[in-house]
């Protein structure tokens, strides 16, 4: 009886491990550079079915299909851009975690840069106006008053 329980327990512990290993494909790469490109591409392509997962992290069937295509196309010697174009033609810009710089995304990319520039301009203007204010020459009346104040102690 104890033996049966032990076997069942062992099976229960091992079962999730098995399920986990089933979802990870084993890919053969000719060189480490291609392997790294594969990792990068599957990390920057977004799964169209699941809301916020890269295809490299997703178990959904479509993510698996997309990983297969990325792998096949890398083996065919396609460039990263060609592979991304291939995916965008089918699934739209949605699959890019890194939106491309184009007419429609100009605001997206340009706004943060524009805000930084505006901020820098404001800082420069403020510093400059403050410096000018402190370096202003004293008028004759002010100078006379300053002299009077400075000399007051001496005269007393």
């Amino acid at each position: 009886m104890a033996r049966v329980i032990r076997v069942v327990l062992a099976a229960l512990i091992l079962l999730p491990l098995l399920a986990q290993s089933a979802s990870i494909e084993i890919r053969q790469f000719d060189d480490p550079v291609t392997e790294r490109r594969y990792q990068e591409l599957t990390a920057t392509l977004r799964c169209p079915k699941c809301e916020n997962q890269a295809i490299g992290d997703s178990d959904s069937p479509i993510a698996g299909d997309m990983r297969d295509r990325v792998y096949e196309q890398l083996q065919d010697g396609r460039s990263d851009k060609e592979i991304l174009d291939f995916m965008v033609r089918r699934f739209g810009d949605y699959v890019l975690y890194n939106p491309r710089l184009e007419g429609r995304t100009l605001l997206l990319w340009g706004l943060p840069a524009a805000l930084v520039l505006i901020g820098a301009l404001v800082v420069v203007l403020m510093v400059r106006s403050r410096r000018q204010a402190s370096a202003r020459r004293l008028s004759d009346a002010e100078r006379a008053r300053l002299d009077a104040l400075l000399n007051r102690e001496r005269n007393e």
């Binding site: 169209p48 079915k49 959904s60 479509i62 299909d65 295509r69 089918r90 699934f91 739209g92």
Partner: peptide
């Protein structure tokens, strides 16, 4: 194999 589906951008 879902090849046509893939070219159609079908994800479900």
């Amino acid at each position: 194999e879902g090849t046509l589906g893939f070219d159609l951008g079908v994800y479900g």
